[in-house]
Amino acid sequence: MATEENKNGAAEAGSQTVSQQGFVYLPLIAGWLVPGAGHFLLRKWGRGALLSASILGMFVMGLAMQGKLYANAHDILDILGLAGDLGNGLLYIVSRALGLGAEQVQVTTADYGTRFIVVAGLLNVIAAVDAHNLRTGRKS
C-alpha cells in the first residue's frame, strides 16, 4: 500500500516537473493564435473546449452578421477596433486572407457584428492570459 502511494506520488511529482519545463509563454502564444489552445496544451480539456466554443461562436456570429474586420487605423476608434480584432490571432489573419467581413457597415446588425468580432478578440486575450496564469501556477 505504502509502496503504491509512493509510486503515485512520484508519478505526480514527475508530471509536475514535466509541466514546469519548456517555454513558459507557449500557452499564452498558442492561446492567442488559436482560441482555447493554451488550455488544451495544459490538458484542461473542458475549460479549453468552453473557451474555444464561446470565442469561435462569437467571431463566427460577428461575421455572419456582416460585421466589419478592421484593416487599417485612420483614427483612434479604428486603432482600438484593430487592436481588438488582432486579439483573435489566426482567426483574424485567415479571415482577412479569405476576404471575409464587410468593407463597410451598412445595416444595424452589421454594427453589432463588428462589436462581436472585437469582443471575441478581447475575450481571447483574457483566455490566453488565463492559460499563462495556469502555466505559471498563479492560478490552479
Binding site: 475549460r47 468552453l50 473557451l51 466554443a53 464561446s54 470565442i55 461562436g57 462569437m58 456570429m61 452578421m65 444595424t108 446588425t109 453589432y112 462589436r115 462581436f116 469582443v119 471575441a120 475575450l123 483574457i126 483566455a127 492570459v129 488565463d130
Partner: peptide, 22 residues
C-alpha cells in the same frame, strides 16, 4: 436575428469566458 437575440448570445458567450477565466 432580433436585437434581443443578439444581446442574449453576446451575454452567453461573454459569461462563459468570464466564468471559466475568473
Amino acid at each position: 436575428m432580433t436585437h434581443f437575440a443578439a444581446v442574449v448570445l453576446f451575454a452567453l458567450f461573454a459569461s462563459v469566458v468570464f466564468g471559466v477565466t475568473q
